[in-house]
Design a binder for these strands. Structure first.
Lengths: 219, 219, 219, 219
DNA sequence: CATGAATGAGATTTCATTCAT
DNA sequence: AATGAATGAAATCTCATTCAT
């Protein structure tokens, strides 16, 4: 039984090894340009071994995303349901959750933002895209509800809740992608977290009415 | 002489025809997935004709971007040097210039944001990237100077000028890309311009100190 | 216009060249074992050229068959409707039509007889098989009608018409395939046609009642 | 000693298990398409276990055939040497022996008829084919002798003995293969045996002179 | 000039076979 | 003895680019 367990553990490790390599390669090359051989070399395995673990390139690509996105959904849900946090605190926590997730897996962000384009994806990954869409919608809905509450309480400007969501979400994504582009040109010390924090500060300043913020529960 | 001129005009038109088609196809499929045949069909020309006008695929891709980006630089420069505009008005005009440019040519934005990534590009397009970088830097420097002025005048929060540039630039890009992603999922009426305007409103609210704004010249 | 026509003619010739090569290769190796490279070499063309003319291996395989089978249907139909032939004469003519067809294209016979097996076939070739089935049924139905008539006229034994069809059809196919196997072992002078004729003689002797044959029209 | 015997018995059973599975899979997929994994799954064993019992795929394929064909040779020999049977009775018995053999193992028939083709086969399987040829020739020679006797006795038409053999053999094979094709299209009740019997009836009617048949011994 | 056709080079995918346990 | 995992080698298919007309 010890043997069987070790086998399973080894298999999982190998899978992880492939996933990690694939993230690297997909991040640097994109879905279409990354070759399975690239991934195999990065993972220090044979090409055929990759295929022993994942049915094809798309399927491999798929699994990377879902795992991470599900993790993000979990984090956001916990914050969303935490009644001891103020609205503003929740938004800050949302930002941190996104930060943790996308720093850890930038490929996912690229997918959510359809950076690898529709037409290039095959039947299989369409299914994946649908799943990604669904999870993304789940997250955005929670964001929207929080903003809505802020508007109702009068602490945020009276705008449609989805507007705030779009801006927050886009600003975040824009910063991550732009950060990637900048460091691609000129790799240097990482000021990203502080830029992100400042951006959210400014965003919150920008949407607040100035009315006394809620000190109490948000729900 | 009329004939010679017509020849030249026809040649330019043909070139424009190819550029337009190529933009379409690259936008929908990405650099790697778009085939020369796709472009030829879209342009209603033969494959070999494309090669009569552009040395190869990368070179074609390159020209698309530079043309548009140079146009953007021009627009930004005009605003930048227009002394009759207030700082805030300039920022608004910058936004509009970006809007016009990137709505017209979203592929460029993808390139500035390194969405088609480094490793995939061949020697020739590295050169292109360098040119893009240079032009981009030119634009961002002008942005930075304006923000700096605002900070010095005390109308903007005392932060590093590049922080504001990064946030503005990222927010803009994020919105464009996110808009593309959303309409890919659910094509509907286009509220993009108003979302963008609101986002900049909020951004400006967020960075202003509250001190009376400059009514006069910015330079 | 002369040029355009020549182009078309050349294209057709090239297509024919590929078809001919493919028949050869498929006959000797079978669908699964034959490689596109084999066919390309046989046709003295590049691999990619084959793909310029046929979407994929299955599609190529498909076209080979349908062309020939349709030709057989035509031949059989002409005989079938020729009122000046006696029943027995028609059967002889059917045999000759089959002989001409399958000598010319033995791969088809393999397909009709499901020699390349079901499970190995892809979606496209399933569709092909359906078309083959339909055409085959058309032929067999005509055969059946002729036998039926013979039975009704009392010149053939009173058996179910499909029995005769199956036996005639199988005997024919068996001889072709067996001939192929024998000459594979020991290529020698071709006695096939005479063997086939004798086999049909014996078959006809075997099914006739002995009653005076119809001297007149069969329809 | 009980243990050693059990070991041997178990080993033989395992071998049988593999052979049975392999027959199934080869029948349904053909030599080329069938994978060792398919066979392993069908046999409910591991892939590597197959290789513990058979040197490679071809060798496995080989043994399937020889075993059965040898069995057929035995059956035919018994009939052939049974002096109490008339010529016609012997032919009937030959048919039954073939029927039993090929119904039980259709893959063999495919091989005898070179349905899996020459060029695809490796050195080892060439050797196998040679063995198959030899055994087949043995059978056909016995058939030929019987027909020859019939001709000499004047009960069969004066034709070359190999002609009769070819026709009988082909008719039989044609029926088996055609039956397979038909049931692939339209699986239904199995009338095969009766069709086969009728076909042989007709064949015998066709080759007989009409002279009183031999009531006595054929040898 | 414009172009259809041909193709080399390279990517994905499959599978028989080996190997370590 | 039995096996799951790893992989080299080979097959299918794609596409940027060239060439002859």
């Amino acid at each position: 039984m010890g043997i069987k367990e070790r086998r399973i553990r080894e298999k999982e490790m190998r899978q992880q090894q492939i996933v990690t390599a694939a993230k690297q390669v997909f991040l640097h090359k994109g879905l279409k340009s990354a070759t399975i051989e690239d991934i195999a070399i990065e993972a220090e395995l044979g090409v055929a071994t990759i295929y022993a673990y994942f049915k094809n390139k798309d399927e491999l690509y798929a699994s990377l995303n879902l795992i991470t996105l599900e993790y993000l959904v979990d984090q956001v849900e916990i914050v969303y349901h935490n009644d001891s946090l103020s609205i503003e605190q929740k938004i800050i926590k949302f930002k941190d959750a996104m930060y943790n997730t996308f720093r850890f897996d930038p490929v996912l962000l690229r997918n959510i933002f359809r950076v690898e384009l529709e037409e290039t994806l095959t039947a299989l990954s369409r299914e994946l895209l649908e799943q990604i869409n669904q999870l993304t919608r789940k997250i955005l809905t929670m964001f929207a509800n929080i903003f809505d509450e802020g508007v109702k309480q009068g602490i945020f400007l009276p705008r449609h809740k989805m507007l705030f969501v779009d801006i927050m979400w886009s600003t975040f994504a824009g910063l991550v992608i732009w950060e990637g582009a900048k460091t691609a040109i000129n790799p240097k010390k990482d000021f990203f977290k502080s830029s992100l924090d400042e951006a959210f500060d400014i965003f919150l300043r920008g949407i607040k009415t100035g009315k006394a913020t809620d000190k109490g529960k948000s729900k």
